[in-house]
């Protein structure tokens, strides 16, 4: 079952901390979104493996954009 990790707020992708194939646990930091000069970590909603990464460093994202798909 795939889980979408969505952007909780609009901003720029500061850093992507995982690679495709990585296994992650719930609450691991996946991506850091920079908004208003503040780094906001996005956490994994559940355990899983990273199936797809939809964003790269420097991308502009809107709220609710899909960042990563976990499996």
């Amino acid at each position: 079952m795939a889980t979408n990790v969505e952007a909780p707020l609009a901003g720029n992708i500061w850093e992507v901390l995982v690679k495709v194939g990585d296994s992650v646990e719930e609450d691991d930091e996946l991506v850091i979104i920079e908004a208003l000069k503040m780094e906001n970590p996005v956490y994994a909603p559940a355990d899983g493996t990273v199936k797809e990464i939809k964003v790269a460093k420097g991308d502009v994202v809107e709220e609710d954009d899909i960042l990563i798909i976990l499996e």
């Binding site: 707020l9 609450d27 908004a35 208003l36 000069k37 503040m38 906001n40 970590p41």
Partner: peptide, 25 residues
């Protein structure tokens, strides 16, 4: 946006998955 950042910070201390920054703006 300092005050909004402070809100985000204090909020995240209580619940790290709570993103208050944009609401505070």
């Amino acid at each position: 946006p300092m005050a909004a950042r402070v809100v985000q910070k204090v909020g995240a201390e209580a619940d790290k998955k709570n993103y208050l920054l944009m609401f505070a703006m």
